[in-house]
């Protein structure tokens, strides 16, 4: 595949931005500075970057409960995301949502979601809206292998196929739900094959190879923009952290985690590709360091932000109706 070096270096940087964001979120959650649940996607960077970095600003995406990376790389500001994770007034959603409800609609980010499978029918509806308005934007609909067994995902894929909607279903198959492995959750672990059942193209891709992801996503995006309908990408990948930061993780063999980390890491792998093309190691290290600094600065800003005033608790329930607060 042809790709110029600047684009490649940018992809490398975006992978590091996601990782640095997530690593810092995990560290600070453990340190008690962030609340709620924090699900990080360290290890899954290629499956996010290879797809979402091809999106236009006017395209849309949903994200899962493990969706910080998608939100960040679709264009949300890191500092506002950290402020959201910290429940601050200036957070991306004014601190009302937190990790699982993080949206930036102006940038086409339809939100992370706390209800598995719930994003897919909504994404399909956004695609319907795009087609209705005769635009050539597309929608990315992210979901994990575990939630691929929610009814809503199937209904959305089928209807998107029937109506030929401009949507790309992206399954990040990290092979586990919270703890239960995919092999226990489905008799067919080749999730891409499900596409055939809906009459749409499906591709199983090495989700830790950013260039392979980029290429297959490109094909799906082209198809969707041309009005040829949806596609399904299954991106095989792995997460390094437990389901949610701080939870026990006894169901995945230690060696398996180690194996993915040391031999199949998407950033390491892409770094080697770049070095084979004469990119210097110092260049790569500088990129890494810049993203670490970027995220630290964003986090520091977020921690300076105020918590919302309690009157914020009862704003925005309706557009045109007020809700009462407390009397004391």
């Amino acid at each position: 595949m042809e790709m110029n070096k600047d684009t490649m270096l940018d992809l490398y940087r975006q992978m590091w931005r996601m990782r640095s964001f997530e690593e810092l979120a995990a560290t600070e959650f453990k340190a008690g500075k962030l609340q709620g649940f924090v699900h990080v996607g360290v290890g899954e960077e290629a499956s996010t970057v290879g797809v979402i970095c091809q999106a236009r600003l006017t395209d849309y995406t949903t994200a899962t409960h493990r969706g910080h990376g998608v939100v960040l790389l679709k264009g949300a500001e890191a500092k506002l995301m950290y402020a959201e994770l910290g429940g601050r007034a200036t957070g991306l959603c004014k601190g009302r949502g937190g990790s699982m409800h993080m949206a930036d609609l102006e940038k086409g980010i339809l939100g992370t979601n706390g209800i598995l499978g719930a994003g897919a029918p909504i994404a399909m509806g956004v695609a319907l809206g795009i087609k209705y308005k005769k635009l050539d934007d597309v929608v990315f609909c992210y979901f994990g292998d575990g939630q691929s067994n929610e009814g809503g995902i199937h209904e959305a894929m089928n209807m998107a196929g029937a109506l030929k909607l401009p949507i790309i279903f992206v399954c990040t198959n990290n092979q586990y739900g919270m703890w239960t492995p995919l092999t226990k959750a489905s008799a067919n672990v080749d999730l891409a094959k499900r596409a055939e059942g809906y009459g749409i193209p499906g591709a199983a891709v090495d989700g830790n190879d950013v260039l392979a992801v980029w290429e297959s996503a490109g094909v799906a995006i082209d198809r969707a923009r041309k009005g040829e309908g949806p596609s399904f990408l299954e991106l095989k990948t792995y997460r390094y952290y437990p389901h949610s930061v701080g939870l026990p993780d006894p169901w995945r063999p230690k060696e398996e985690i180690e194996e993915w980390r040391t031999t199949r890491d998407p950033i390491d792998r892409f770094g080697k590709v770049l070095m084979a093309q004469d990119v210097k190691q110092e260049t790569l290290e500088a990129i890494e360091k810049e993203t670490v600094d970027e995220m630290q600065e964003a986090f520091n800003w977020a921690m300076q932000q105020p918590f919302p005033d309690v009157t914020q608790a009862y704003q925005d329930v309706y557009t045109n109706l007020a809700v009462e607060g407390r009397t004391v």
């Binding site: 914020q312 329930v317 009462e324 407390r326």
Partner: peptide
């Protein structure tokens, strides 16, 4: 609780559900 969804931010969550003083 107030007739709102439950907010994430700690001070909002605390305010939305009944407090001792309520």
């Amino acid at each position: 609780a107030l007739d709102t969804p439950i907010a994430f931010s700690p001070p909002l969550e605390e305010y939305i559900v009944p407090r001792e003083k309520d």
